[in-house]
Design a binder for these strands. Structure first.
Lengths: 340, 340
DNA sequence: CTGTTAGCGCTTTCAG
DNA sequence: CTGAAAGCGCTAACAG
């Protein structure tokens, strides 16, 4: 592959001149410029990005760590991040942590090794401490979907407590009094997940505001996907506790939940109402459509990438005060019945 | 950030020695080795990947072009590709073509500029000719989901004709005689999309084998997503033509189709049966579950990445004869009614 | 086993 | 406006 020297030779100029026309970094005589341009296209010259990165110490790369590339939630997150990456002409380097602490750590480190200009990290398997330790020296990195003490400036997150509170209140306002909660279980025993805890907290807030004491028998934990939602619901059903509504940690669990209910001939929403969180594509196409709490994940991905790039000095933060905490909102479909 | 010189100085050795212990490329005296290791960890040394790539002319990067990062189909593709990337310790560089010819071209070129060791491309907006022109000199690139004349060695694709034939035959075997086809329309007037054409061809094959002459009034085209499926179905319904089954280009369109039917109070599968292609997550959670033709996209992503890396000389192709053409298979759920 | 040295391809002073 | 030259951090002969 042709390099800058070849171009210089063919154009009859020095490599500095070639560099100047490539980067438009200084004036060059029209005639020489034309010669260079001609030589470049003739040789199909493409500047070597490594050499450039080496000397400029900038990679024009945006790193992103997600949990699982195949998950619709992360899919939306990636789309949001990609939007700003392409706007700033950055390439996207993606790594998956596979919900495993060791692999998450590797994913983060590999991105750091690559000297990304900025990094956006979604991590659930690593402790706050570990994440901060890994990213401390990486000043233009942003954590998404997590709020960490002393690291707030670099966190983009949802008000999960409010999400839990909103959903539960919505159910209460529709006359439900026995509301089950399907929570996300943590793979790591020592790591309490902030988001599921906050959503549960919000759930309790709403209940207590209606003078209802949260019943541990209505709490079921499982992994945060369709299968987990299914299993958690079966377990709930087997307990023979009474409930008229189920609030699931996320839409994926809600989908599994509805599947289990259908199997057991429990009608949604006639017998039991269901709500989720996220508002991924799936929610729209479930039947009945899933009433859920919208998690603006794509917009948050965009915000995170934008913040990361701002930290990297790529641009000024647009807003006078950047929004770091996003607000959930209720998306009404057909999975909740009014009991009044 | 510390570089190799700093480490060498601190360890009291030459940079070659440091390089040797980093890459384990030659024996080093135990004492020096230990000194180097200590210095590295003390300085938190991370080899500069650009310098390494520059000198070795290898980037340890796998490039991937997809249509849209937010689409579940591509999500699965990415997961398949990522699996082999991480297995070979390659970083994944992802670009999105946004279903636009110009942006697809840019995406491919940007990956070439980055000197990826191998590239996997999913392109629908560019013509065969353009794609081949762009990737001709890029010997370790693979096209997925497309079969191109004279480029077969680098294509990984599904037997789309058979997919269309299988689905239609399945419907015929269940007694359906009036089967509508919802096709993918092409954004680009001059570009006939091979996959939708092949599926339609297979649809016709099956029909003709049952002595049924394909009726153009039962064909409706639209964009290949939920909205397109919805619109195509509404159009079909408005035509007042008779049909007992609908075969959609993909699951997304089938989902939109079912949505439209539900709105119009047409019951699935009692009044109309529906089939799709892909078997994405959605298919499982639609109600009724969508009977579809499984497109092993994740496995194909894995195969494509593996082939690309083999072309790059990273490894021998595992199979004596690598599978380039994948076979669809029927995934039975509840959206098809037996009329016999 | 170890150090010296010549680049990899590019940007960026610095003279002219 | 232009070219020469000094690196960016690393690898890989080459000599010892």
């Amino acid at each position: 592959m042709a390099n800058i020297k070849d171009v210089a030779k063919l154009a009859g100029v020095s490599i500095s001149t070639v560099s100047r026309v490539v980067n438009n970094t200084a004036g060059v005589a029209r005639s020489k410029k034309e010669a260079v341009v001609r030589a470049m296209s003739e040789l199909d010259y493409k500047p070597n990005s490594f050499a450039k990165a080496l000397v400029s110490n900038k990679s024009d790369t945006l790193g992103l760590v997600v949990g699982d590339l195949g998950d619709p939630f992360f899919s939306l997150l990636m789309r949001g991040v990609e939007k700003v990456a392409s706007h700033y002409n950055k390439q996207l380097l993606v790594s998956s942590g596979h919900h495993d602490p060791e692999r998450e750590k590797e994913a983060i480190l590999s991105l750091i090794d690559r000297r990304c200009d900025a990094i956006v990290v979604h991590s659930k398997a690593l402790s706050d401490y570990k994440v901060m330790e890994l990213l401390e020296s990486q000043t233009s990195s942003v954590i998404i979907n997590r709020r960490m003490q002393g690291f707030e400036e670099r966190c983009i997150y949802l008000d999960n407590r409010r999400a839990g509170e909103m959903a539960t209140r919505y159910l209460l306002e529709h006359g439900h009094r026995h509301i089950a909660f399907i929570a996300r279980s943590s793979e790591n025993k020592h790591l309490e997940l902030e988001d599921t805890r906050d959503r549960y907290q919000g759930y309790q807030d709403a209940l207590l505001a209606h003078s209802i004491f949260p019943d541990a028998g209505l709490l079921s934990k499982n992994q945060p996907d369709e299968k987990g939602g299914y299993d958690a619901t079966i377990e709930l059903l087997n307990r023979k506790v009474e409930f008229t509504a189920i609030f699931a940690y996320n839409d994926a669990m809600a989908a599994g939940c509805m599947m289990a209910l259908r199997e057991r001939k429990v009608q949604v929403p006639n017998d039991v109402s269901v709500m989720g969180v996220d508002d991924v594509l799936l929610a729209h196409f479930l039947n009945p459509g899933l009433t859920t709490v919208r998690y603006p994940i794509e917009a948050m991905g965009t915000a995170a990438a934008s913040l990361a790039l701002a930290l990297a000095g790529e641009h000024e933060p647009e807003q006078p005060k950047l929004v770091r905490e996003f607000m959930p909102e209720i998306k009404i479909r057909e999975s909740v019945r009014c009991l009044k």
